[in-house]
């Protein structure tokens, strides 16, 4: 039962990712794309944590943490870049 629910959850998250990717591809502006990436990173943290749960491996959580740090910085960097303008 729990597994089915987990599967459904994963599928839902995956659908969300697909929508985010669509926004990433469609744009139309750089801000939209970065916003999509921002959303995707947080969703990915969830996915990684979920994978840690499924695999039963505590150490995978480290990956989620580092991923969070780096992707936050990426978004911040692009935001600052956009702010400085062309």
């Amino acid at each position: 039962m729990a597994e089915t629910i987990l599967l459904a959850a994963a599928a839902l998250i995956f659908l969300g990712v697909v929508l985010g990717v669509l926004r990433l591809v469609l744009g139309p502006t750089a801000v939209d794309r970065v916003a999509a990436i921002d959303m995707l990173t947080i969703t990915s943290i969830s996915l990684i944590a979920l994978y840690a749960l499924v695999a039963g491996r505590f150490i995978y959580l480290d990956v989620a943490l580092v991923y969070g740090v780096l992707s936050f910085l990426a978004v911040l960097a692009v935001a600052r870049y956009l702010e400085r303008g062309p």
């Binding site: 629910i5 959850a9 969300g16 929508l19």
Partner: peptide, 18 residues
């Protein structure tokens, strides 16, 4: 798992909103 599912719903709606 149910909590996770609820979280997933929010994540999905984020994607939809996006």
């Amino acid at each position: 798992s149910i909590v996770i599912l609820i979280g997933a719903v929010f994540l999905f709606s984020a994607g939809l909103g996006m």
